[in-house]
Each structure stands twice: as structure tokens, then as C-alpha cells.
Design a protein around this nucleic acid. Structure first.
Lengths: 336, 336
DNA sequence: CTGTTAGCGCATTCAA
DNA sequence: TTGAATGCGCTAACAG
């Protein structure tokens, strides 16, 4: 197997010193244009492979960014991963991927594991309200939290309450007045939903909860099951709209409604959250609150590199909040 | 920010030499149980972080495995990534993720980039029939190809022809006799499909092609569009079954058929490939040829670690072929 | 069993 | 502008 070329091998071939090669490769100002050209010529003919681990050790930076996600099968996180890989590749960073499987304990052990390793920084998506793992992470590694706000480190995410409010307003506008919220009842988006209903004093608007949670594609089936366990053809019809924690739960809702013979959107409007590709894959297309994933990732990445380059004087724990945006599609469209 | 503790700091605190600490941390047999206990005690109180880059340099192995995929938004690859992250985490490896965006040129630059970097090996999923990038990869890095067979390095994947044959057989059994194949006509699964039809001399069975390809969720909409561009309510009904290259194309087909007012499965049976979570998310649930992703990933990982540990005498380019398995669901179920 | 020595390949001083 | 010397933190070979 062909070995990677070292800087000193190149130096030998050129009859110069290793430092000269190093300087040339770094575009150091203290080197003659001619030498630089020579070195680069050879470098390119060899494929230009500088041994990174050595560089990492000498410079104390590895060019690797870790990303900790709650799940690798939730389409929303997949979207984030995809976009993050994009910026990383573009900006010369490598992406190390780790899933906490929505378990704080795993999250913690990942952080433990990451410290002392070869990562320049980490993009963190917490999987619970337990901030212990994050705290440990922030203590030893440059960290940026995305998709939610935290006071522990720079963070960026949308205003989830606002997202819930948009859904409530939309439901009101299409004349709905009895909603089932599917997901953890204390989820911020549901709080926002409720607050809108209260603020607008929609007296004839009733709200119920169905507490099912999940992080991967099983969430679809768990939601369906929970729905079927708790409602039948008759009782489900006390509602005329459903707001699900995420598109996965919304799709599970589609299944259950189909089983119960309830039509979407005529009898029941359904709205999801995150606006994942899934929302456009199902029929009817699912209305969903979109998060500006591109912005979140790009800005999160920028924040992190600033931290890494220490360009940030006092990084503090700046918190950035973006606006969500309800995308209306067939699942809430023709509702009465 | 708390610095990672070095081995020599620990040594200093304990009044022993760095090598002793190193040995203890490695469970070397040439060390007293007492010393080992002392070291571990301190290590744990400190969080036990050994600086990896230094170790990487000294041992020439980093504990990092790279995975090159054609796309991070195709559910099939996502499934692979998820499972690979699982084994990696479990076996103490870090996973470096790179997407070629289904472009051989990008694939090549990724490989170029990976060489000389800190990866012990790479799990490679080629994105095209252009094997140049893979060849370069194999030359300089321990490489294992998954999801397809190649003579260039150890590889593991299913027999795609066999998958196509299973679909053909199923279509025959449910009494279909005019099929539209959606995807690159020379795809192995379609060859298998055709070969079954020929072998069984199904004289009354006709086959057409619709050449649309894609690697991410856009494939859904491109397929839909291609279908609508090429067929109308009438002409589409010359077919009674459709076999799509992958679940994404199948879902796109759902949309188009809905637009055209064709019912699934009554008027048209639809079958996908890869059996991604998407297949169970849509309605009616999509029949699809399942690939044993778990086996592929686990075995691929094992092959790679064997290569890395040099336990393999002559790695050669062993090729392993697994069996696909058609999962029948509502989309081809009640077909006549 | 343990300490000392010598690198791993690079970046970065310091001289020249 | 360039070469020589030093060190990053660790492992491994060698003594003791």
C-alpha cells in the first residue's frame, strides 16, 4: 500500500530542508517565490498529502469538528447533518458524527469521549432538558448549540413558541376549533399554541394532549398506535385539527386517521413541524412549520469557527433566535 | 477552558515516569497491579482524557474511520450511516462522514483529501461506475466497499439482479403483464427483472423504461415530473405495474399516479427498492426489496477492522454477496 | 516491574 | 531567505 509522503521526503528529493517545505506549503511570506513553486510542483505530482496527525499535534488543532445529534434517522437531524457536512467540506473541516440516541447518558459519554480527542469544536444538539452533558462539553471544548437556545454557550435556534402560535393562528383562520396536540405537552411549540389561543381569547377553542414522544422513524408507528389506543372512529372526531410535535408524528397521524376512516383535510386538518422532506412525500402534502436549517447550520458553524480561531474576544453565551415559518400544504388547505 | 490532561502531568502528580502512566492506561501486562490502580484512580478523577493526536502520531493509527456516501439525504444511505455510527461507537472508532454528492469528481477529491489524513480506513459507497476514485483510495488506504461488489478491494453487497428477479416473479404471481421500469435502464436490478421475464418466457409480458435518476429527496419530484411529462391519464394505463429504482422514485410515482387519477394498487402495482423507512411512511405502504443493511454494515466494518489490524494475511479482494428480500405491502397487495 | 531514550511528522523558534 | 534545533504528547525499545 502506497505510503503517504512526508514533508521530509519531499525535502530530501528537493535537496532542501524540511522547514523550507513546510514554509512553502503554508505560503509563508519568508520564502522565495521560486522555492515555493518548486515545492508545490513536487507536492502536486505526489498528490499533496501532508500528514495531518503530526500537524494536529504540532499546532494543537485537528481540523475536525464533531456533531452530536439525538438521532441519525430523524429527517430533521439528517437535514442538519447534510448541510453541516456541506459547509465543513467547503471550509476544509472534517465532520465527526455521533448520535446520543436521545439518551442523556450516552450524550454524556460521547462528550467524555470527545474531550482529549482530536476535535477542534463541537456542534451540539441536546436531546433533553438535562444540561449536564452540555455543561461538561462547554467546559473543555469549543461548543455551539443549535436548534435551541441555552445560556451555557453560543447557541442558535428558532422561536418554537412562535411556531406554535403560527399554527394556532392558521387553524383559527381555517375555522377549526378543537385541536389535539401530539407530543410532550410541555413542548415549547405547544406552549406557544396555547398562548395564542389564550391571548386571542378564542373562547370556543378547545385543546387536548396526546403525550407520545420519539426521535426516529419508530415515532411514526408509536404515534399511530397511541392514537388508535386512545381514540376510535367516533371519539377522534371531537377534533377537527391536529398539531404534531414533528413531521414523523404527523405521518403516524395520517396512518391512524386512515385506519379510522377520517379524511385529511376535509374532516381533519393535520400540521407537522420541521418541514422535513417527509412532509412533501406523503399525500396529501403535509403543512408544517419550517425551521431555517440552512441559516441555523451556517451561522452555527460560523460561531464555532470564531470560537476556534479565538476571534471572539469574550465568546460569552450569545443566543440567536430565528423565525420559524409555517408552510401551508394540502393537509390543512381546504379545511372548512 | 479546562485543558485536557496530559500523560506527563499525571506522571508528575504521581511521581512516576510518563511511560508508567502510558502502560497503566494500556493495561500493559508489565506493570504492577498497584501502580495500575493508582494511575487509573487519578485518571478517573481527571476525566481520563488521553490526548489522541499524539497517540495517533506515535502509533500511526487514529481510531477514525471515514465513510464516503453518494448522498446524506437518501434514506437508504442514512440508514447505513446510522448503523455504521452505531458499530463505530461500540467498537471505539470515530466516524468521519463525507458525501460525494453523487459526483465522481467530488468523490475523487474526497479521497485525495483523506489520504494523508487521520483515517485508519474507509467504508466506501461508490456513486458511479467510474472506479478511478476508488482505485486511488484502495492504493493508499485500507478500504472496503459496501452495497456493491468490486474486484478492487474487499466488498459486500446484495445481488441486485436477484432483487429484480423477485419483483418480476411477484408481479407475475399477482397477474401483471405490463411493467414500467423507472430508473437507469442498465441498472442491475432491471437486468435481473428482464432476465426473469426472458427465462420464464413470459410471452405476454411487456416492459418499458423511464430513464430518470437521482440520489436525494429531489428524486421524488423529478420522477413525478418525468412521469407527467411522458404519460397522461390514458397512456399510463398501458401499464399495470411499476418497478422503481429506489423508494424515492416509487414515492414520486405515487404522486404522479395520484395526479393522473390512477389508484394504487387496484389499477397499478408499485414496487420500490431498498425498503427504507419511507416505504412504511406512505399510503398505501410500499412493497420494496429490502437490503440487509445491518449485515452489510456489520460485516463491512469487520472486514475493514481486519484489514486495519492486518489480521488478514492477503486481504485480496474478497467479494461477498448477500440475498435481497422482497417485502410485500399494500402497494402490490390486492392487485389482480 | 519501572525509568530513560528515542523517535512519530510537523511547525516554529533561533541562528546563520 | 534558509537550515538547524526544539518541542507537541505519546508509544516503544532498551536498559536497569
Amino acid at each position: 500500500m502506497k505510503q503517504r509522503t512526508t514533508i521530509s521526503e519531499m525535502a530530501a528529493q528537493l535537496g532542501v530542508s524540511p522547514s523550507t517545505v513546510s514554509r512553502a506549503l503554508h505560503n509563508s511570506p519568508t520564502i522565495s517565490a521560486q522555492r515555493k513553486a518548486e515545492v508545490w510542483k513536487l507536492a502536486e505530482s505526489l498528490g499533496l498529502k501532508v500528514v495531518r496527525p503530526a500537524k494536529s499535534e504540532a499546532t494543537h488543532c485537528s481540523g475536525i469538528i464533531a456533531c452530536v445529534v439525538p438521532s441519525i434517522s430523524h429527517p430533521f437531524f439528517v437535514d442538519i447533518i447534510e448541510k453541516l457536512e456541506g459547509v465543513c467540506a467547503q471550509r476544509g473541516y472534517d465532520l465527526l458524527l455521533r448520535s446520543s440516541n436521545a439518551t442523556p447518558a450516552t450524550e454524556y459519554s460521547i462528550v467524555e469521549d470527545l474531550i482529549g480527542k482530536h476535535v477542534d469544536g463541537v456542534i451540539f444538539i441536546p436531546c433533553s432538558t438535562d444540561m449536564t452533558p452540555l455543561k461538561t462539553c462547554v467546559e473543555s471544548l469549543k461548543t455551539v448549540v443549535i436548534t435551541q437556545q441555552t445560556g451555557l454557550c453560543p447557541s442558535i435556534g428558532i422561536n418554537h413558541e412562535e411556531g406554535g402560535r403560527q399554527v394556532a393562528e392558521h387553524f383559527k383562520e381555517i375555522g377549526k376549533h378543537s385541536c389535539l396536540l401530539i407530543g410532550p405537552p410541555n413542548d415549547a411549540k405547544f406552549c406557544g399554541f396555547r398562548s395564542y389561543v389564550e391571548t386571542e381569547s378564542l373562547t370556543n377553542f378547545s385543546i387536548s394532549d396526546l403525550d407520545v414522544d420519539g426521535w426516529d422513524s419508530r415515532y411514526i408507528f408509536d404515534t399511530r398506535q397511541a392514537l388508535l389506543d386512545n381514540y376510535d372512529e367516533k371519539s377522534i372526531r371531537q377534533f377537527d385539527c391536529i398539531f404534531a410535535k414533528t413531521d414523523l408524528a404527523a405521518v403516524g397521524t395520517y396512518h391512524a386517521l386512515h385506519d379510522l376512516g377520517v379524511s385529511i383535510p376535509d374532516e381533519m386538518a393535520v400540521c407537522g413541524f420541521d418541514d422535513t422532506p417527509l412532509a412533501r412525500a406523503v399525500y396529501p402534502a403535509l403543512s408544517s412549520v419550517a425551521q431555517p436549517v440552512g441559516q441555523i447550520v451556517n451561522f452555527g458553524f460560523t460561531l464555532l469557527t470564531r470560537l476556534i480561531d479565538e476571534r471572539e474576544n469574550s465568546p460569552g453565551a450569545m443566543t440567536y433566535t430565528l423565525k420559524p415559518n409555517l408552510v401551508i400544504r394540502g393537509s390543512t388547505f381546504l379545511g372548512k
